[in-house]
Nucleic acid binder design. Structure first.
Lengths: 153, 153
DNA sequence: AGTCAAATGACAACATGCTGACATAGCTTG
DNA sequence: CAAGCTATGTCAGCATGTTGTCATTTGACT
């Protein structure tokens, strides 16, 4: 057996490398989960990430702003939002603070999609954490945040 | 602020969703780290994942076998290994157990690349964990494994 | 032995991410 | 105010991943 299932770590170094590889694997599984879950809504993982960011922002967000929150390139986000505008989920709104950089907002259809997303995401989150103590989740989140800070200069 | 930095979770559900989004972000940062680290070696994240899996396997591995370890599609792995064979890092070897599905092995150049990978990866792992208790890493890995099992049915 | 489902290779289409390059808008600083 | 640095939009090329399809090989079961 290769990387998976190796529970013997001769050092902190090996433990960390095992954690990194496991994180790659979990990342792929989570995206697959998200895609399956939102398939019926006409969404994909890339799209509900964007919808989620916009829905949670009180003020308006520009494309580079969304990219900064997600930690992605502005070009990648721009491509997604352009398609989502075409599909009627988002619309661009004049930005009083910048002549060229418009604000991205949810259309009515986009708000409906967000609600539908919540309707499947919430039960999914509850179901998959019911046997995990909240302290474990909290500790995991703190570790992940610590690593993010380390690599996000 | 948006998803990041939100430390107030009204429920386990919110905590979990925050964790998932943070994992997406960390995943991107780790790939960027790996790419930067191995740039001088002519490797990319996709390539050192493959090299790592092969190097750690005692017996020979087929392309679908590598894909299963990494949790990716066999087609994605096939494309990477084809290029790596062209580049001289890997070679295909007749598989006594299967007429069509060949074994993927490291060439001498591939072994050299793996050693070079270790030479940069090990100090990186040590450096980035020196201020994190081994218990925290272990608990994090156990949580990640638990989630992987949940989604990898 | 014969049949049939699963695994594999090969190819194609597509989604998502990155970087680079260039022009323009906005801001800071002299 | 002018110059210059930074942020943004836009376009292009590329790497990496997914799914779908089809033919062939394996292996299991009757």
């Amino acid at each position: 057996m290769g990387f998976r299932g190796n529970s013997v770590h001769s050092s902190k170094r090996m433990l960390f490398l095992d954690l990194v590889l496991s994180l790659f694997r979990l990342n792929g599984l989570l995206i697959a989960e998200g895609d399956d879950m939102t398939e019926a809504l006409g969404l994909t993982s890339a799209r509900w990430k964007v919808i989620g960011v916009i829905a949670l922002s009180s003020a308006g967000l520009t494309v580079p702003g969304i990219a900064r929150v997600l930690g992605q390139s502005r070009q990648a986000v721009q491509r997604i939002t352009d398609v989502m505008v075409t599909d009627g989920l988002l619309s661009y709104q004049t930005n009083p603070k910048h002549k060229r950089s418009v604000l991205v907002v949810l259309t009515e259809q986009g708000k409906t999609a967000y609600q539908a997303l919540r309707d499947v995401q919430d039960p999914w989150a509850i179901e998959n954490t019911e046997d995990i103590p909240i302290e474990d989740l909290d500790a995991g989140l703190r570790l992940v945040r610590r690593l993010i800070q380390k690599f996000d200069k």
